[in-house]
Design a protein around this nucleic acid. Sequence first.
DNA 1: TATTTTTTTGTATAATTTTGCAGGAATTTT
DNA 2: AAAATTCCTGCAAAATTATACAAAAAAATA
Lengths: 147, 147
Amino acid sequence: MKNKNNRLQQVAEIIRNTHVGSQDELLKVLHEKGIAITQATLSRDLKQLRVVKLPTDDGEYIYSLSTDKSLNAMPAESISEKGILSVEFSGNLAVIKTRPGYASAIASDIDAMNAHEFLGSIAGDDSVLLILRENVSHKQALSKLRV
Amino acid sequence: MKNKNNRLQQVAEIIRNTHVGSQDELLKVLHEKGIAITQATLSRDLKQLRVVKLPTDDGEYIYSLSTDKSLNAMPAESISEKGILSVEFSGNLAVIKTRPGYASAIASDIDAMNAHEFLGSIAGDDSVLLILRENVSHKQALSKLRV
DNA sequence: TATTTTTTTGTATAATTTTGCAGGAATTTT
DNA sequence: AAAATTCCTGCAAAATTATACAAAAAAATA
């Protein structure tokens, strides 16, 4: 379906911002947003998003993104493999979360691209800070990062 | 029961060291170790241990201790007492000066907070660069850091 | 110790989640 | 464009996980 990626985004979004404790509950929220899928599909979505059902202090459960914050919700295949876990933006900066230890390798790959969109990058252990040239959109940056 | 705590330890141990994908599987391992409980009790144990069923890359599931990666709140003192010397801001960046060698430890503590306000951090030796999410004020950031 | 209260557990069952299967869409190949 | 392939989905059922309830065990109290 055309909307699957979008839907995954929304699911991730809901999980990030609200407290849902079962798939049926989550399903209701989705339906309110006009997203009509069945629980089976949701289960598959959650698996793909690596969502986890977390027991809380107060004896309940809430769903939670195990992997990260947000943009990892992007279809995993679309972002370069190797160890990028997520990419998020703030202004002209992108923070790329990587598997531990992968950061410098990835940064060096990005540098090697010599992409005009990127001014440069700095790697820690599991994050890369990527500085975007002015007027480069997040979307443009993302698409550069894709395989 | 006297052995409950001990049992919880063992369960945690098994989860840390082996890959089990269902409670029945885990139950078998426990039985082999001479720990005879039912699935119901195990379910309760897992809840208490805050164990999570994590979808993996290869389309399976493995149980995992969520507390290790902690979405736990950080006790106020734990961070400022670990060697933060100063925090200063520039736009959506914060530079945290630390005692020499403390930077990565502090950065990793900050990451462990999983605070929505922070996109991520990169540690050098005695400084941490902290990237704030857009529209997060310096004041908000500071209060998260509880300096 | 006897009594009361709290905690822990199993049984059975309810609730929830996962998946095999088949059909239909989308995409790719010829 | 047709054919082949891959992807996505719902349905229904299987598999898994959570819990109400009752009883046993442990702990606290008298």
